[in-house]
Design a protein around this nucleic acid. Structure first.
Length: 706
DNA sequence: GAGTTTGAAACT
DNA sequence: CAGTTTCAAACTC
């Protein structure tokens, strides 16, 4: 049975697809909760191993089975709970949950174990609170997919709305559309019972604390995402129990570190991508829940081993979109796009990390660099965010996007979209790839929601070094940016360079800045306002020519009146391009043959050379001094307060002279008066002496110490 | 660092 | 669309 389509596979975290992991993995049942493995008659099509869990705590045991072959491997899986799993097919009190032989299959191709028809568990609902809530998979027709055990040991549960995949098989309308629950049992030694302790009267239901939200972001239905790619994502949101929510017990450990991923399963057998499958989307169960820890259950995300960065590559868009995920108290909601639901996303791996308070994904970098930047910083980030008190959110709600952004491709990177009405705190953030770099360099990620994700007051977290913006093309997505100094615009108008370039303010000097995730709503409104005024407001002003930079030109042209377009007031000059016919400038001197321009360029080049030479000379001098001091310092003569004289070697003198000559050249090139030139040279000489003395003194003290 | 100049953005 | 105002960066002293 081909349960998981290639599209889905692409969506799955690596752990799930790790065949080796499951093969090599030891039985993941926690030692603390030993499980009895007992053969139980089941309605299975193939002999399997049974996995039992001690009542009332659940545990699951997977007996490693060869999965490499294409044939369904035999596996025994017994999930049992004496109180909750005493289904009809399970001897009462035996504590065994039977899985019929036909109830599962192993899809070697997908490295998944498919447990079918665990509906019997629902019959046990009356046997106790635990049974009624979550200890078993109780939805009739549901199927449990036990995926491979991730190397990281992170259980991953996937919900596969089955109706869209296999629901056709049950098209008689009488039998409920089966659903697949994909559960990765990766606990290893971390595997712990999901249920409460035997003494606990109440089985702790993860559903009480969490819920899954299924979001479908489709393009064909008017959503701003790519029409070619639809994505269903699920947020796991903390919540209060909701009557509309269906609880599903997970007889495996879903403790710390779990990942929950819901993927809208497209027509698995359909070879075509992008085929509309709206009915499938509509068939999504609004809520799929997993019983875990307790009402206050929190999941600590072991990010070090997980691909936290989730990116969504939108065809036709130059941006990489990422999801910000936080918990939410919103009611269980299924957000669906109106358009096609076939998931063909190749690059995105929706992964919702669940915490009791905060969950997130990290803004993303270009796809090609994604994996490089994921690990460490994300870990730090998430640790911080786990402690936060507020909730972050998932990607953009399909229902609200059209209202917010008529043209998604015009969204500036960094756009944070407001939560959709009625969806609680679920929202989306579209973050530019550049911002990833900011995050990468920032030890603290402050993706704050309006409800209180804390950012150090008054401190932006931009990590990008303020490099002269002139050095790179302004339309470059990687252009370094100076910190802004906005005071009145709240950094929400195009006056603000950060905002205009779709970046969050970071390490800026702005006052009352709203260009951050703390002010998502305001920022969103501002973006919308700008786009209403000018749909291309966030498009690069300097368009690339057809044949490279030589054809770069300002998209609108400048309007300079007094600067002659030879100062940085002029956007053309600032971008190091010449004015073009579309410019409306007066007295323009920024054209190819302009002598003024040539002079300026010459001076600029000279200045650049000067800086380089100066830097090189200073570096050389310093290194030579250090080298000489380490080799020739006569300690015996360095007693008292006198410095050794031997450091004034030939090399030091030569390096000093180089510095002085460089200085002389620079003053000459810049046309400085002789008096000033002499002064600058003398000053440079003084600097050299200071460095020599300083290095000598340091070397002296070092030698004394040694 | 304060003040001025400049031109894009925003506004009317 | 044009004129005016606002704004922040560039520039000067």
């Amino acid at each position: 049975m081909d349960v998981v389509s290639p599209e889905l596979i692409n969506l799955l975290p690596d752990e799930i697809m790790d065949t080796e992991a499951i093969i090599a993995e030891e039985v993941p049942v926690s030692a603390a909760q030993p499980c009895d493995v007992a053969p139980v008659p089941m309605e299975t099509d193939a002999p399997v191993t049974t996995v039992t869990a001690q009542n009332p705590q659940l545990c699951a045991t997977l007996t490693p089975a060869p999965l490499r072959s294409g044939l369904p491997s035999q596996l025994t899986l017994v999930v049992s709970s004496a109180s909750s799993l005493a289904g009809a097919s399970v001897p009462a009190g035996s504590g065994l949950q039977k899985l019929s032989p036909g109830s599962f299959a192993i899809s070697a191709a997908n490295h998944q174990i498919i447990l079918n028809k665990v509906a019997e568990a629902t019959k046990t609902s009356g046997m106790g609170v635990s049974a009624s809530t979550a200890q078993v998979i109780k939805q009739d027709g549901q199927k449990l997919l036990v995926t491979t055990i991730g190397k990281s040991g992170q259980p991953i549960m996937l919900q596969l709305p089955q109706k869209s995949v296999l629901g056709q098989a049950s098209g008689d309308g009488k039998s409920p559309a089966p659903q697949y629950k994909v559960v990765t049992i990766g606990g290893r030694t971390e595997l712990k019972p999901v249920m409460g302790s035997p003494g606990s009267p109440l089985p702790v239901s993860a559903l009480q604390a969490q819920q899954l939200k299924t979001l479908q972001v489709g393009g064909g239905g008017g959503l701003p995402f790519s029409p070619a790619r639809d994505l269903t994502v699920v947020s796991v949101a903390s919540q209060t129990p909701n009557a509309t929510q269906k609880s599903m017990g997970v007889p495996v450990n879903m403790a710390l570190g779990q990942q929950i991923l819901t993927v809208h399963q497209p027509a698995a057998v359909s070879p075509s991508k992008g085929v509309s499958n709206q009915s499938a989307a509509q068939s999504l169960k609004p809520v799929q829940t997993v019983t875990m820890g307790g009402s206050h259950f929190k999941t600590i995300i072991p990010l070090a081993t997980q691909p936290n960065v989730q990116q969504i590559q939108v065809p036709g868009s130059r941006f990489t979109y990422v999801r910000l995920v936080t918990s939410t108290t919103a009611n269980p909601t299924t957000l669906q796009a109106g358009g096609p639901t076939t998931s063909t996303m190749q690059t995105a791996k929706p992964m919702v990390v669940n915490t009791g308070t905060v969950r997130m994904s990290v803004p993303i970098a270009p796809a090609q660099t994604m994996k490089q930047m994921v690990p460490k910083s994300i870990t730090t980030t998430t640790q911080v965010m786990t402690n936060a008190q507020t909730q972050q959110r998932l990607i953009m709600p399909a229902t609200s996007l059209p209202q917010i952004q008529p043209n998604f491709t015009n969204l500036p990177p960094g756009t944070v979209l407001a939560p959709a009405p009625g969806t609680g705190n679920v929202g989306y953030a579209v973050v530019p790839a550049q911002y990833v770099a900011q995050l990468q360099q920032s030890s603290l990620v402050t993706m704050a929601s309006s409800s209180g994700f804390h950012t150090p007051t008054g401190v932006q977290t931009q990590a990008r070094l303020p490099v002269n913006g002139l050095s790179t093309a302004p339309d470059s997505s990687t252009r370094p940016r100076k910190p802004c100094n906005c005071t009145k615009s709240q950094c929400l108008k195009l006056y603000c360079d950060c905002f205009a370039n779709g970046e969050f303010c970071n390490n800026c000097n702005c006052n009352n800045c709203f260009n951050n995730l703390e002010h998502e709503t305001e920022r969103l409104k501002a973006i919308k306002t700008c786009l209403d005024r000018n749909p291309g407001a966030f498009k690069p002003k300097i368009g690339k020519g057809k044949q490279g930079e030589s054809d770069r030109r300002h998209s609108k042209g400048c309007n300079c009146k007094r600067s002659g377009c030879l100062k940085n007031y002029c956007e053309c000059y600032e971008a190091k391009i010449m004015c073009s016919s579309i410019c409306k400038c007066v007295g323009c001197k920024n054209f190819e043959e302009s002598p003024e321009r040539k002079t300026l360029m010459h001076l600029a080049d000279a200045a650049e050379v000067r800086v380089q030479q100066q830097t090189a000379a200073k570096t050389k001098l310093s290194s030579q001094i250090s080298d000489l001091l380490t080799r020739t310092t006569p300690i015996s003569t360095s007693g008292g307060g006198r410095l050794p004289y031997t450091f004034v070697t030939k090399e030091v003198v030569e390096a000093t002279c180089e510095c002085l000559l460089d200085q002389a050249r620079q003053t000459e090139l810049s046309g400085q008066p002789q008096a000033l030139a002499e002064r600058l040279i003398l000053e440079e000489f003084g600097h050299c002496l200071m460095r020599i003395i300083s290095s000598a003194g340091k070397a002296k003290s070092d030698c004394i110490n040694c």
